[in-house]
Write a protein that binds this DNA or RNA. Structure first.
Lengths: 347, 347
DNA sequence: TTGTACGCGTTATCAT
DNA sequence: ATGATAACGCGTACAA
């Protein structure tokens, strides 16, 4: 039923190798036969079978992108960047959404190994260091993380430094009782950034001030923030592991009647589009997500080209974006700072 | 380098067929050899090559999901639902992001045909009816759309009816000069819903009231709304093709100093999470996206099982969600309607 | 310039 | 219960 090289060759009265040649543009072929073969290919709507091709070439021209939650707006941007580069280079991408589940993540790694993907991008892994090392040893990977195994190539996000900067910002604004809301108890790089900022300023961190959630969504953060603010009403500021958590906190404050930033200052992380769309707009740390995805894929291409022998990390830069959720606003109207300036804006 | 059946067979002192049998759980195998083979497989970390498997079986256990923009929060949810079902059934999913570009969409369809995917889910296609028919004839597809080709199976979204309902809501609130902002000029199902509502109520639609954009994002909608409201300041309400467009409109109103809903009522479509997070919260039409993705994948499985001979559409239900952006708010505090009710909420 | 024959790793058909 | 062998569709030596 399905058209193969054989069919095209027979129909064109040539050998399959000749057809193969015109398809891959190799060797010298007479213009006449080339044209004829091309026509037959069109007529028969022939399409090379990637499976067969991959079987012999040992390459599948596919890569896997492993992420915890595509519904977190952080990841679609990363995906976009990675996919753009992948497509440019003829690669397709398998999307592997792990639902924040380490076991599902490992299962996907295995599955993708079976698919003989040429490489794997792991972003926002929920694996522990040992597991990640293990995966990196057996596969060609490009890891996007703030805790990259030394043995694996990838993109390094200065998350601890970023959160530290954000927390320091709160401290500079005069806050002393600052809490943290984030993933826990294991994935604590960001929390460490918060703790570092507190330590550097000789500020105590009460254990009740740190709240852990199992996944970062507006809803889970909303619940967690509600509990946190009940247990630790003395907090005047909250550092959140990402913007979704910060938005959940905003909602919790609204529900509790606490005004932001007056009654509670809030900082997020990631600078997803949502951060600038909520009220008050979030002060947060910008991560160039599209670039990160792009760089991760470029790095993966290098790993593939280097036959796996490459373990370089590239560190991206992040920077704070000050908006309204901490009360330290510099001029300008709240509504249009992050969009192009409209012409003739009325007062 | 890579471990094959052969290696396992040799090491276990059996034929490759025997190994194949224990892997696929076929035929009668003595417990002894089965155990031994299993052990060797573990030792060698053997993994069946899907490419080879697919070559002979004619199946790749992979499907393609084609979407215009993963950064539109509509699609991640659809993806999640589709992926969950896919994984349950042992399928992997290729993500094909077309960037709203019909040519890239067609290119992806071709590419995926080469990959010998077992089926394709097309969601939010930018192809015209003829192109879509064409694709549906040559591939096993499940199409998520509000304009499903009769010949193809899929999930049908009552977008026109939904927009009509939303626009009618505006009309019931007393609005007469209502505009529409959406994708154009081709993909106009939603616009038609708006026009139907206006027609049913004998209201005119000035050509200046309908604004087309080439893609639906906050940013493009912001620009478009700015222009629209300048050209047609007489509008008192705006029906938007989706929530992102509605949020862009909200931003434009903020920039122009027009209050929502007082100076302009706004309705969206999709009910993405963002809709309930902006201020004022959007009145919109809820689409059960996760369910849609799930159903689409289930439908695709049926198409595959039926050997492509299936063209049934399943229509999903949508419903209006009234929030604050039209001024027709029923009781309750704005902030917590869409999250679980907190205990002991202060006044 | 073009063709033949083999192998990629697996499943399936027959034997034994 | 197990094994030899032929496909699957394509690329690559090696010939011609």
């Amino acid at each position: 039923m399905t058209v193969t090289l054989r069919h095209v060759a027979d129909r064109a009265g040539v050998s399959i190798k000749t057809v193969s040649r015109v398809i891959n543009g190799q060797g010298e072929i007479s213009e006449a036969t080339r044209a004829r073969v091309r026509r037959i290919i069109q007529e028969l709507d022939y399409r090379p079978n990637s499976l067969a091709r991959g079987l012999v070439s040992g390459r599948s021209d596919a890569i896997a992108l492993i992420i915890p939650q595509i519904t977190d707006p952080f990841f679609p941007d990363v995906l976009l960047g990675a996919e753009a580069v992948a497509r440019e280079h003829g690669y397709s991408v398998f999307l592997c959404n792990t639902n924040d589940n380490p076991e599902q993540e490992l299962a996907y790694v295995d599955m993708m190994a079976g698919k003989r993907v040429d490489g794997v991008i792991i972003c926002g892994t929920r694996l522990n260091a040992a597991q990640l090392e293990q995966v990196a040893r057996h596969h060609r990977v490009s890891i996007i993380s703030s805790r990259n195994p030394a043995s694996a190539a990838g993109i390094s996000l200065p998350a601890a430094a970023g959160v530290c900067e954000a927390a320091s910002h709160l401290i500079r604004l005069g806050h002393r009782r600052i809490g943290h809301l984030g993933l826990g108890p294991d994935e604590n790089v960001r929390e460490q950034g918060y703790r570092r900022a507190m330590a550097e300023h000789d500020l105590p961190v009460e254990s009740a001030w740190v709240k852990h959630v199992s996944s970062l969504s507006v809803e889970t953060a909303f619940q967690a923030a509600l509990e946190l603010l009940e247990i630790a009403p003395e907090l005047t500021a909250l550092s959140c592991s990402n913007d979704l958590a910060a938005v959940g906190t905003l909602r919790a404050c609204a529900a509790l009647g606490r005004r932001v930033p007056d009654d509670l200052a809030v900082v997020g992380f990631d600078d997803i589009e949502l951060a600038s769309l909520v009220t008050p707009a979030l002060t947060t740390v910008h991560v160039p997500r599209y670039e990160v995805g792009k760089m991760a894929m470029e790095q993966l291409l290098r790993v593939i080209a280097a036959d796996g022998k490459l373990s370089e990390h590239i560190e991206v830069k992040v920077h704070m974006v000050v908006r309204d959720s901490c009360g330290a606003r510099r001029g300008a109207a709240a509504s249009d700072r992050d969009l192009h300036e409209p012409t003739g804006e009325p007062a």
